[in-house]
């Protein structure tokens, strides 16, 4: 069963989810930390939007991205529909709110006195963000894992905007759907196991980073 096609599907999966995760981690951490440490008009509305977006149904995200990227749509000229880039965009919309929301919660959970102490030490701007992110690093890695889990297992959005094109936009989840529909359960189960082990090894790696303790 380990053939060239499977390897291509795994590569596409890692490429799409990996890129989407990198972008989402950047955006999500930045947004979460900024919102946690700053007060601005409309902050509560923004927080509510993020909290809602944490539970966005993937097919709705898929539909929205599809509408924008469709040939006749507002961003149709970019010719991104049915490409891996379109899938990455959809996954970024799914993972960023999860990471931002959990980051916001993690930073807010640091006791007020610790934040005073950080500022009393002279930390400002980026220094303050750096110190508080280090303090909340276990929660932040959990946020990254949640974002990763949300997109590697996702099928609706990538199916809609990627089109499940063989050798191009086919990923593990869409391949499982296809094989099941064709009645190739054996192939579907193997793909499922591959997906699980992939997800497990990446989470294992992140957990090892997370559980490192400072000092002796």
């Amino acid at each position: 069963m380990i053939d060239l096609n499977l390897l291509i599907v795994i590569r596409t999966t890692l490429q799409v989810t990996g890129s989407a995760l990198l972008i989402s981690v950047g955006l999500g951490l930045l947004a979460g930390v900024y919102i946690a440490l700053n007060d601005f008009p409309g902050r509560k509305v923004v927080v509510s939007i993020i909290n809602t977006a944490m539970g966005l149904p993937p097919v709705v995200v898929g539909l929205l991205v599809l509408l924008f990227l469709w040939r006749g749509g507002p961003l149709g000229f970019l010719r991104l529909i049915y490409t891996t880039q379109a899938m990455i965009i959809a996954q970024v919309f799914l993972a960023t709110p999860i990471i931002a929301g959990l980051t916001l919660a993690a930073i807010q959970q640091i006791p007020q006195k610790m934040k005073w102490q950080a500022r009393a030490l002279g930390a400002r701007g980026g220094q303050l963000a750096w110190l508080l992110m280090r303090e909340a690093r276990y929660s932040l890695l959990a946020a990254v894992m949640a974002g990763f889990g949300g997109i590697i297992s996702e099928v609706g959005a990538v199916m809609m905007v990627g089109g499940n094109i063989k050798g191009d936009t086919r990923v593990l989840t869409t391949a499982i759907v296809l094989e099941s529909q064709k009645g190739n359960f054996e192939a579907a189960i193997v793909l499922g196991l591959v997906l699980l082990s992939l997800s497990f090894s990446i989470n294992l790696g992140l957990t090892f980073i997370q559980q490192r303790k400072p000092g002796t």
């Binding site: 006195k113 005073w116 009393a120 030490l121 002279g122 400002r124 110190l131 280090r134 303090e135 400072p214």
Partner: peptide
């Protein structure tokens, strides 16, 4: 100025890293 509170309020780093914080920020 420097400030010390009732609780030590050390960050989850090593002792040395904690003592270095104010110096690093400066």
């Amino acid at each position: 100025a420097a400030m010390v509170f009732q609780e030590p309020l050390l960050f989850d780093l090593t002792v040395k890293e904690n003592i270095a914080l104010g110096l690093r920020f400066r």
